[in-house]
Design a protein around this nucleic acid. Structure first.
Lengths: 340, 340
DNA sequence: CTGTTAGCGCGTTCAC
DNA sequence: GTGAACGCGCTAACAG
């Protein structure tokens, strides 16, 4: 079908391929009459430059790669949408890499930085090791981290420690002392120091500051998911002295906690306070109190930063950090504990 | 960095580029000793074949394109994940195109079928016009539709009419007669005959069969989203004779209805029955009665079908239709109407 | 202004 | 078994 090449157009228009190329790329030095002729030939033959050939010749792909672990998670999707918005503006295409296993991550970290295939790489949520980071900074294409961190690489992040602190502090201010924390697995095979770990630190910090002793049995971790969170909540609530408040490291997990409370006939927030993290779309419907983080914005900022790095290679030497603000959104799942 | 080419390797190994190429592609006719030498040179120089150059030479990209309107919607994401699973198996990459406007859709339908950039195209939810379909079948690469339909193109679909019928029939069987239907906008700028329209037909069919007259005021449409659905539900429930049951064209919209009911202090399902469509993940948590459709599977099947078409061009002449089964999932948001 | 030519990096015949 | 040349489709530098 579209096997018509630039040479066919040149022949049909009675000009050389160079001229056709110039017309395609709006090169100024082409006489109007010639341009006209070529454009007609292009239309007549329904010619379109071959993208791949163009990429090879130009040494530029107009693609950017995005590595998004568990891109099904609402948070990743929102970020992705932010990225996509910017890419569409720049007429760039998006090559998406999902990663759900350690092997896949390693494979990607091995092959992607080579950077044929795209002009820039965005990595979500996966903080690279020093070794990988080294390869990244020395690689041929710029890399930007979103929701992940490494001192040598530009990044868009939030202060997860502060987020954990804010959530816990809110509960403490309400009068809670028996506060549990649930999260996905901290020593994740994926992340060196993941968000959940940092939030846990914030949690500890807030408790300590309030003089509330840390109880190991009040901390649970399991794979990310509603079901697992529900089970953890049940375990927690079966304790001889159950928590009066639960801080979930993500809204998705908070949903599991809500579900468990509902199954036990526990009134929320009267008998159990619940706070989540992220502020995904349904959080509002569920009236879930949570820590809001700018998800869509993180994608926008990440992509914008990447484009800056692509245009100005100097920026790669001096990694930029964009810190996005966090906000407590009080809705209806937190309140003072029963006795107060 | 990775500017080392096949020629460098050839030189380093003291052989010709042809031999290096043969080694890379495991061509049998290479002496073991030579192969050894070349492989060492490759490792020593940290050589990796340039993907784009390879693609141009081969005339094959190992990419597939996916057009996913509103890929933020939970349903699209689930489908995407199904696709991704198959692609990873085949070592194919995924180029994602979001579309949220009519212009973007037209642009994509114009440029994508040209099919440099990828070896196959998957289109979600957008049923092409006859004209576009024509271009698609004559284009250089195979196309498969998922959740969209056209007689000349292979597709993975569900029976939306039956789905609408099932949902409505369930309500009727429960004893409801005042049944409303809400959906996104039927004459969507995107779809010629979208799923919501077909479900509406099923709805009408079920009512008619039961001898229940159709009430125009019981049908509302607006942009897809929780907020819009909530408003439509409020409008419906403010009617002099409000419906006793609402069928929402998607679970996301059903959430809006749930929210409205909650705001009005209407007990669900005692005072209002609600049924959704899709069975997305949170539906279970919300105990939402809904029509389950195999979302993840649709992605898997679509991708698998596409690969078949890519391997065997003959299949393109004879479009395949894969019809996925629907299932009523009764949970806790539907019950007989108040009086019964 | 415009035609011609030399690559971009790799796969693949075709002789040796 | 292996090297050299050609071609994929396009852009850019160089003549004219």
């Amino acid at each position: 079908m579209s096997e018509v090449t630039i040479r066919d157009v040149a022949k049909a228009a009675g000009v050389g391929v160079g001229t056709v190329s110039r017309v395609i790329n709006n090169h100024p030095s082409v006489r109007e009459a010639t341009r006209k002729k070529v454009e007609e030939a292009i239309k007549a033959l329904n010619y379109h430059p071959h993208t791949i050939a163009r990429q090879l010749s130009l040494g530029k792909t107009s693609n950017i790669g995005v590595v998004a672990p568990f891109f099904i998670r609402p948070a990743s999707v929102e970020r992705l949408r932010g990225v996509e918005t910017i890419l569409a503006e720049h007429k760039y295409d998006l090559i998406l890499y999902n990663v759900e296993t350690k092997e896949r991550r390693d494979e990607l970290f091995e092959t992607l930085p080579r950077g044929d295939m795209f002009d820039g790489l965005l990595i979500f949520t996966l903080s690279p090791s020093d070794e990988v980071a080294e390869r990244l900074v020395n690689g041929p294409i710029p890399v930007v981290l979103v929701d992940a961190s490494h001192p040598r690489i530009s990044r868009v992040i939030i202060d997860d420690v502060q987020g954990g602190y804010m959530a816990t502090k809110h509960l403490i201010d309400l009068g809670h002392e028996r506060i549990a924390y649930i999260s996905d697995i901290l020593e994740s095979p994926f992340e060196h120091v993941g968000a959940s770990t940092l939030r846990y630190q914030g949690y500890q910090q807030a408790l300590q500051e309030a003089g509330i002793p840390l109880r190991p049995e009040y901390y649970r971790q399991d794979q990310h998911g509603v079901l697992q969170a529900r089970k953890m909540a049940h375990d927690l609530l079966s304790l001889p002295q159950p928590p009066t408040a639960i801080f979930a490291a993500s809204d998705t997990q908070a949903i599991g906690v809500l579900q468990a409370a509902q199954e036990r006939g526990l009134a929320v927030p009267e008998q159990l306070s619940i706070i989540g993290f992220d502020d995904i779309e349904i959080a509002e419907y569920l009236k879930l109190t949570t820590i809001h983080q700018p998800l869509f914005t993180s994608g926008v900022e990440g992509a914008a930063l990447l484009f800056q790095c692509m245009e100005d290679p100097a920026r790669r030497r001096q990694p930029t950090e964009i810190l996005l603000p966090l906000r407590l959104v009080e809705r209806a799942t937190t309140a003072p504990p029963a006795g107060m």
